[in-house]
Design a protein around this nucleic acid. Structure first.
Lengths: 211, 211
DNA sequence: GTCTATACGCAGATAGAC
DNA sequence: GTCTATCTGCGTATAGAC
């Protein structure tokens, strides 16, 4: 949730719609074009308001971008915490994580590439973000280590396992335009492939660690 | 290989150094900042030549970028053809493909994100490129289909298999800054993880398709 | 081929009326 | 809060001397 919204909600309820419109428009344009490619004019047009308004609400393009970016990256680690904290088995949790990831990315398919690109450009933002909210890496590692000790899963580096999961879930979204072109398939067919992966990926992952 | 080099080599050998310097500098800057983020001045500075020279050799920023991009994307599908065309078994070929990919990306770790980003922005370039050189998707599919018929591998969609391979090989490079930050590990440790994946990835893939 | 100086347009940002 | 008009700087691109 964007804390700035809360501020304005307290100050004046009337400001919410305009600001929401701006944020929604900015999201679309930034996700599509990236920080540098995006134009304030495009955002204003898409929001149906004046360009000057953007500067009224968010002092600068940089600030507006940072707001969007921070909000977006928080969606990278969605309900992982709740899944990890549940009382399911390790295998069930892993499957749920994969499916949750793919499900969420289907809603926001442009997120991965956006975040990867900007994370690459500006490590600063990442550091700022971790200060607030660390991704639940520890909980994940602990789960795996525990399952290893209980002889349920093979000896494996949790980081490698995490990398495998993230790769298999996220990459197909980041590489969509490229892969779709290479395979020469329609948008719809590609979506079907993704849908299919909700079964394939967990299978693949679990099979690889099961003892 | 950049065909433009060849042209100049024929016309005048003296021009090669300046042009090489430009291309080398442009590569670095474009890979780092992307098309929009890159500045012609930065490229000129890095090349140790004048900004006007860039326009002398490559009429516009767009043209210079396209040159770099086209050259870069050709490295995406490296010696796949020679591997696929060899007389190894399907399993051996798959392992070789994984290792070849990771090996090559270790040389040019910035390539994946660059290509994914720009492919996302400009499908035009991709279409132009495929006109020249299609990636060996058909050869790959045929190999898998054949192995399926011979009961060596499970029934599986070759596209999904390819997606898995590419995901596991490429994503860790595209997500390096992010993952390194999340895991809180050094550049060196991350490199070690990647190195380890030359064993892990083929294992994982082959295990998943072996009957 | 290589340089300096400069033109030109665009995009971010502000001033100020309403 | 919202608008129009305007400033400013930067980045691409060109002109033209050497």
């Amino acid at each position: 949730m964007l804390t700035i919204w809360l501020n304005y909600m307290v100050k004046s309820k009337k400001n919410i719609p305009a600001e929401q419109k701006i944020l929604e428009a900015a999201k679309q344009v930034f996700f599509d074009k990236g920080m540098h490619g995006a134009r304030m004019q495009d955002i204003a047009d898409k929001a149906g308001i004046n360009k000057a308004m953007l500067h009224y609400y968010f002092r600068s393009k940089e600030k507006l971008f940072e707001t969007i970016f921070m909000d977006a990256i928080e969606h990278l680690f969605p309900k992982l915490n709740s899944i990890l904290g549940s009382d399911k088995t390790a295998f069930e949790k892993i499957e749920m994580i994969c499916v949750a990831y793919i499900n969420q990315l289907q809603q926001v398919p442009y997120l991965p590439l956006f975040i990867l690109s900007e994370a690459n450009r500006q490590e600063t933002f990442l550091k700022k973000l971790w200060a607030n909210q660390k991704p639940p890496l520890k909980a994940f590692s602990d789960m795996i280590e525990k399952a290893i000790q209980q002889k349920q899963v093979k000896q494996i580096n949790p980081l490698q396992l995490l990398m495998n999961i993230l790769s298999l879930c996220i990459f197909p979204f980041a590489a969509k335009p490229l892969l779709q072109q290479v395979a020469g398939i329609s948008k719809k067919d590609y979506a079907a492939l993704i849908e299919e992966r909700k079964k394939i990926v967990p299978q693949l992952i679990i099979q690889s660690i099961k003892k």
